[in-house]
Structure formats: C-alpha cells, structure tokens
Design a protein around this nucleic acid. Structure first.
Lengths: 333, 333
DNA sequence: CTGTTAGCGCCTTCAT
DNA sequence: ATGAAGGCGCTAACAG
C-alpha cells in the first residue's frame, strides 16, 4: 500500500504538504495541490486510519450499536457517512444495557457512538456521553445531555388511535411489551401515553383490564398464546380495537383471531407499528405506522459529525414525521 | 486512557517488558509478569489498537460483510471472536458484488474478511484473497483458494424432497429466485440440483414447466403475484408439492394458496428454507430446513484466526449439519 | 506557501 | 530476563 510518504516523493513535495492538501485546512498553492492529487490518483493512495488516528487523536470512525436490525436506518447512516467522509462500523448487541461495546471506543477503533434501538442505563449513558459524542436513534432515554433522532412516538400513536375512534371503535386494548426487569422502553411508554391521550381527548372510556403486556423476550408462539386469550373471549366482552406496540405482535393477533373465527376487521381492528414485512405477511394485512428510517439514520450521522466538529453548542433532539399506513386489519375512517 | 508506558512506569519496568508480558510470546520472570498484570488492572489499561496495528502491521479486527442479517451467525462470530481475543466490525451491504467494503481493509481498520451471504465475483474474490485472509459463510462461490463454512445445501434439499416423495407427493415444483443478471447464487444452484437429484433417485418424473423463478428483488407482493398463478391453476394441473428456496417465498405461497381456497397441505405441500420467523408467521406454518447459524458463524471466525496465524497450509471447506423442521404445511412421511 | 521536526502507542530487534 | 532504540503512517507546531 502506498503511504503518504510515497505520494510526497512522487509529487516532489514534503509529506506534511501532502497532509495539508488532503485535509484541506491549510493554504497550499493550486499548482502544488494539483500535483499532489495527481500522485494520489496514480498511486491509488488510501490514507491509513491507524496512523492518522494515532497522531491526531481524532477518529472519523463511528460505532453503531444496535439491538434490532433496521436496514433503513443502517442505509441512512452509511449513506450520510459516505457523503461526509466518515466510516461506520457496527456492532449487534442482543443483550441490551451491556457495556461490551465500550471496548471499541477504548481501544481506539472508533471515536463516537450511534445507538439504534439500544436501551442503556441513564446514569451510564450520562458518564459515557461526557467522554464520547453520542446520539440515540429511534429508541432513547430521557437525558438533557444526549442527542436523539426519532419520530414523535406519542403523537404517532395518538394519530392512529384517533383514526380508529373516528372509524367507530369504542372498546380499546393496548398490547405493550415489558422487559424482564419490568421496565418499558421509553418509546413504548410514549406510545402508550399517546394512546391514552387520544382516548381522553375524545371522551372514550377505557378499561385497562382489556389491555395486556407481553414479555419482551417472548417468541412468536408466546405472542400467539397471549392472543388466544382474546380469541377466547365472548364477543360482547372482547375489545373492538387492539393496538399493538410492534408489527410482529399485531401479526400474531391477526393470525390467531382469524384462525379462531373472529372477524378482522369486522369484529376487531388490529394495528402494529413500524411497517415491517410482518405487517404484510399476515392475513388480513396489518394497519401500521411507518417511520422514516433512512432519514433517521442519516440525521443521526449528521448529528454525530456536528458534535465531533464542535459545531453544536447544545445537544439536540430531532423529531421526524411518521406516516399512518392503512391496510385491511383496521380501515381508515 | 492509560498507555502502555503508564503501565510500565507504574510497575517499575520498561515499556518493552510490558509489551512482552501482554503478548506472552517472550520469556519474562513470573514475578515481573505479576507486577505488570497488577498494574494493568489498577490502571484499567486497554491496549490501543491503532498503535499496535500500526507497529505490527497485523490486525485482530475482522471485517464482517453481510447482505442478509442473520442474528445467529452474528452471535456465533462475535462469541468466537471474544474467546479468541479478536474484534469484529460489521458492514451491511445491500448491493451485492460491490467493492465498497475494501475501504475498511485498505485504510487499516480491519485485516481480514468474513462474507456472510455475500455474493462476490469469482475473479475479484480471487485477487482479494491473495491480499487478505477471507472466509465465506453460508453463501459462497466455488473457488479452490477460498475458505468456506456452510451446510450442504444440495444434500439438505435432497433430504427434504425425499421426505415429500415418501409422503406420497408426485408433481413437484421448485421456486427459485434469480438475480437481475440472470445469475443464481451458488447455494441456490446447489439446492436446485439436490432437488433434481432426489426426484431422479426415486424415479419421479419432473415437468420443469411447473417450476418458476422469482425475481430476487421482488417484494412480498411480487411473490404473492407469482403464487397466484399457482392458485389459479386447475386442481388437476397444479403441483402437489411446491419447494421454495426461502421461507418468505414459502410464506407467500402458503398465504396465497389458502386465501384462494386451495388446501395446504391437503392439495399442495409447501416448504421453505432457513427456519426464519416468516415460517411461523404464515398459516399453516411452514415446513423448512434449519441451519446451525451460530456454529457457522463461530467456525467462520475460528477459520479466519487460523488463517491469520498461518496455522493452515491450505484453505478449508467446513460443512455443518442441517436439520429438517416439519410443520403443518408439509407433513413428514 | 512549503519543509523540518517531533511524537502519538506500540512492537521487535538487539544489546546487555 | 530485561532494557534501550528505532520506526510503523500520519499530523501539528514551528521555522523559514
């Protein structure tokens, strides 16, 4: 691999001059810059990030930690990174609230973090964010010192609930998931609050006993079992609208209810959240909420870069627009 | 961050001695080693990978390039990496056969590659494998100079087909996917060959006109459209067994046929491949083939490390055992 | 505007 | 068995 020194020799200048041309942050004569760039092309020079990082103590590599694979977010992050001249390395961590990813910061591989749907203890997060630029994408914990990019989960669920009310639904159930510790992810809390707020705004009475919480670690079968409780209810006792926190839960409900002879959406409307494949895979297909994942990822990347450049006095919270997707499982008013 | 020099000072030895203790490849007195290790703990020292990589020109960071997110493989790769003292950085590339990932090798971030389900031109792959250790996991191209870990896709499909034959099926269709260029991934070729081999071995006549190939880029709706052609056939003309190359295709067929009133598995047996969530999401649930993803990932990692250590004279091909998973869509004989 | 110099953290040869 | 010295590729401070 050609090194910066090789480029310098080939162009007949000093190594530091090459460095200056490449960084673009120092004044160099146009003629000289042209010679350097020509040499870069001829030698197919690629800067060595180890040398650069070691010397400058800065890193253009962003660590992306995710607990849920969302292709759209990944593509958005990568796309923005590419435009901005950054690299992203990603790390799948199925056990949430673990600090294993710190290794990748401490050993110098990366210099900043984007969390995607990753739940991390508030206190730890606070400490961490003082050492490394950090942004939370999609899921987040409340923290004034943390940057975040997401949709307005509460508003999204409010909007969805409102449409069902306008379509004539009256007996509502909300199916949330609950983590082993009994904690709800913050976005899940927000969605539930949005749901309640919509009922209240429209004066719809609500019986919490109709709702349920599914174990976050439940597999599909577990979700089906929960749904069977609803399938087994007397028609008069069953909710006429079941709002699920995620598509896969919604799909489990649709499949289970239909198999038991309950009419969807005739007797019960069912909805999901995220507009994943699962929403299309069930019959009838699932009404759901779509998030602008690509933009969310791209914004998260831009935000990190701003922070790295110190462009930002304060951390920011970016909210992007959601979109309701109506399918057969719950028709629009 | 404490550096190696800090550790040396704290332990009262020379930096080079600390390095020797940590690498374990030089003789150091037990007493001295103990002092060093104590200092490492007290200072919470983490070796800086940039300094190490720059100096040694070796990297313990493995790049994982994938076009399909398979949690099991990821976890296997990470688990083995952790045991062996390696790091994994991963890169999602939806556009297959692209060389963008080379950047991460050329800039020194990583020193070897694991491809997961990533199709890469044979010639390029050959060139690359001469510069960087490389293993293909799950999908692979035929190449004597390349290491690979996978199940025996041909044998898996042979076994599945044979079970359907033994269960009395006689009119077989095989639904493959075809990439824009008209090329089949190698594993897809192998599966199709295994299917044909089983029919031949049991003397079952085969009408290729019954089979079809779905555009690899088709979304769920596209798959449903293909399935509708089969739903619309006269009962006497329709295959009584439809073997799909992937679960999601199988799910589309199950859903579409059932919705059209065709009995699954009564009139048609349907199968998938991979045992993903999609196989559970459809009704009836899908008979499929399970791969030992975790082990595949772990083996791929071990193989890379062997190659990096030069332990391996020749590249290797590791085949792991598949498992048939029978569900309602195609019952066992 | 360009070049010289020093050193980021680490490993490895060589001398002791 | 231990330490001293050099240098991997790069950038930043300084000199010219």
């Amino acid at each position: 691999m050609a090194s910066l020194k090789d480029v310098a020799r080939h162009a007949g200048v000093a190594p530091s001059t090459v460095s200056k041309v490449l960084s673009g942050r120092y004044s160099v004569s146009a003629e000289c810059a042209a010679r350097v760039m020509a040499a870069v092309r001829e030698l197919d020079y690629k800067p060595n990030l180890l040398g650069r990082g070691l010397r400058s103590n800065r890193s253009t590599t962003v660590l992306m930690v995710y607990s849920t694979f969302v292709p759209g977010i990944m593509m958005g992050v990568h796309s923005a990174a590419h435009e901005l001249g950054y690299e992203v390395v990603s790390l799948y961590m199925d056990t949430v609230d673990d600090e294993y990813f710190m290794k990748y910061l401490e050993n110098g591989l990366a210099g900043s973090v984007i969390f995607v749907n990753y739940r991390f203890d508030t206190e730890k997060l606070g400490k961490l964010s003082r050492k490394y630029p950090m942004v939370q994408c999609s899921e987040y914990v409340k923290m004034s010192s943390s940057s975040q990019v997401s949709v307005d989960n509460g508003q999204a669920m409010y909007d969805l609930t409102e449409q069902l009310i306008l379509a004539g639904r009256r007996r509502f159930a909300f199916i949330n998931t609950v983590a082993p510790g009994g904690h709800l992810p913050f976005f899940a809390e927000e969605r539930e609050r949005g749901f309640l707020r919509a009922l209240e705004a429209h004066g719809i009475p609500y019986d919490p006993a109709l709702s349920a919480r599914c174990d976050a670690e439940a597999d599909y079968e577990g979700m089906v079992q929960l749904a069977q409780r609803y399938a087994a209810m007397k028609d008069s006792e069953r909710p006429d609208a079941i709002l699920c926190i995620r598509d896969i839960l919604g799909a489990a409900f649709v499949n289970t209810l239909v198999r038991a002879g309950v009419k969807v959406p005739g007797q019960v409307a069912v909805t999901g959240f995220d507009n994943t494949t699962a929403a299309e895979l069930c019959t009838p297909q699932l009404t759901t909420v779509e998030q602008p994942f690509f933009e969310m990822g791209a914004e998260a990347m831009r935000l990190i870069v701003s922070m790295l450049n110190g462009d930002l006095a304060v951390n920011r919270r970016i909210l992007l627009e959601h979109r309701l997707v109506f399918r057969e499982s719950a028709l629009q008013a």
